[in-house]
Nucleic acid binder design. Sequence first.
DNA 1: CCACCGAATGTTTACGTAAACATAACAGCT
DNA 2: AGCTGTTATGTTTACGTAAACATTCGGTGG
Lengths: 371, 371
Amino acid sequence: MEAVDDTTVNPGGPTAAAADAGRGTGAPAPRRRGRVRATASMADVARLAGVSAQTVSRVSNGYPGVTEETRRQVLAAMKELGYRPNSAARALKRGEFRTIGVITFTLATTGNVRTLEAIANSAAREGYAVTLLPVAVPTQDEVRGAFSRLEELAVDAVIVIMEVHLLDAATVQLPPHVQVVVVDSDAGDRYTVVDTDQHGGTRAAVRHLLDLGHRTVWHLAGPADSFAAQRRTDAWRAALTEAGRELPPLVRGDWSAESGYRAGLELAAREDCTAVFAANDQMALGLLRALHEHGRRVPEDVSVVGFDDIPEASSFLPPLTTLHQDFAEVGRLCVEAVLRKMRQEGPERGTTLVPARLVLRDSTAPPPSRR
Amino acid sequence: MEAVDDTTVNPGGPTAAAADAGRGTGAPAPRRRGRVRATASMADVARLAGVSAQTVSRVSNGYPGVTEETRRQVLAAMKELGYRPNSAARALKRGEFRTIGVITFTLATTGNVRTLEAIANSAAREGYAVTLLPVAVPTQDEVRGAFSRLEELAVDAVIVIMEVHLLDAATVQLPPHVQVVVVDSDAGDRYTVVDTDQHGGTRAAVRHLLDLGHRTVWHLAGPADSFAAQRRTDAWRAALTEAGRELPPLVRGDWSAESGYRAGLELAAREDCTAVFAANDQMALGLLRALHEHGRRVPEDVSVVGFDDIPEASSFLPPLTTLHQDFAEVGRLCVEAVLRKMRQEGPERGTTLVPARLVLRDSTAPPPSRR
DNA sequence: CCACCGAATGTTTACGTAAACATAACAGCT
DNA sequence: AGCTGTTATGTTTACGTAAACATTCGGTGG
């Protein structure tokens, strides 16, 4: 009997089989012969429910104009057949994939990963999936490659977590209907950008240290080729200049704790250095180690502020005062912005900044002279 | 002037504009009138090239039976129209999406992230895209939710980076044709599993320390609810028992550096503790700090081995001897396994182990008594 | 010289869905 | 009763691709 064992090649599939098993007695032989049909289609459901495929579609999409009675029948049929809408057919029909592509370099940095995660979560909440477009090396060729792969990809929009100058050469190849939002860039005049407010955060850090009474603030900068580092450095300069303070020489690291340590050896030797703003927490960690080894106490002799607020920052010795980046918010805003663009509600370009919050811990205090 | 400030709702986008700009004179009027078609279809290309759509399809897929002459014409037409195959239509027609879903919890742990990255890279190399299925909280409900979202998703296979007991309740809902591969689990009898060889790695660490002359090896374990931690602990016990050594009491952390520090305070107080195997590098870091603060030198007084080989491990004080996990290889093998399953070439279940390599640095040495 | 072959290309069809349009049934009104 | 409007449901069609089948054509062997 069973509505399932009907045809030629395509028996009902495990779903139905499982349902049978549950029902006890179970139907006899004809399950799983040859290749198993992947899923039931609307037509199958319609047949079983005794309605048209269109009605199934209406139920499936929650459209009005279906009797409660009919709806129940359709739902029952769906359940029995284990019906799942075919997303390829949907995408083809609707002309959209409900998918957002995310392009990023190595997932080795906390920021990228946390942002990605937030994007995925926000997108899921909006009914969108996230497809990962890995770019092995941050060269224009590689980026171009990722974009060109992307063109054949089922994606309605793209969020780019990387610096915009690498994007420039690649953009040309973007399909026209795909919207782009960029993280970590200052190209708000050309793209839609969402980013942490590097400038405001840095300013808060510098002001905090000056307010404590420090004459000036040294800066342990990130690598010169990073835009984020560059912007933090610029903001540090601006904040000092604005306050009319002397500008100490720049000390540069490469984001790593090791580079922070090396730079720290230099800074520890200078008696006049009482306050340091490190461009990220890892370098701050290395700095703390160097200062400690040279007998310069933190915060009694030297104050240190970091950037990022990585989970370990509160376990540093001493717990680090740092700028908390709200990656979750950045990710959320990215998704929001990209969806708005897709719906053509938002402006084509412009920058949205997410404030960085200064988290006060134990690595800052008034300078020695003031105590 | 700018080709950008043109029309109604949906300008052609950077692609067309840029292409024109490059070509100089450019074609005349009839482009982009009213709503712009997202992409050209095969039919459009066929019309322009003066062939049938099927021939375009043949060219697009590199099928034989097309004259070089015709092929060139078609390619030219494709280029002119900026043709890109519509992946939804392809997926619908072919019955596969060329996409792999990855389910994982928080991307907060290095291991998950690195594995994900490797999966994405390997998948890209095979022409597959990777869709991220985030699961906010590791509860069965959440996992079930992710899987049920996944069912409507355009995915041919799933790689699960999490512990299998959370998977169990959820699997029931998986569409029958979707293949699953699991990372980080010991359920090789029920699923296809790829994982780092926790047992072999641990064994190597313990043997290394015993070979140096230590009487026994203490263990700073990970949280009890982690299978990976559990297996490392089991392997540590087995290795010591096998060597006929005394089994010191277990010290437990929660993976964090802070917990390693707390545990370290305990261990530092024991004169008889000369060798510690920490279940991950973060805890080893905390341990190093605790030992340092209590005047116990590493490696002169105490030897320490970690697990993971995080990038910072080589910058620890001293550089940490640890077990290198080859996440890239794990990811690669996952993709390989899942593709094999899809092609029905491989076995349904079974475990593939990726060796963990002991990286010797400066945190291990013979015990004090031996020097 | 014609039947036949294989290569190149064209035509038909189906994949599963959902918009657009069509119809049927029925209630309310004149 | 007959008309109109509304609601529930069915039918047709198109989305873009590619498999299956059909056709054309130039050449080859009998």
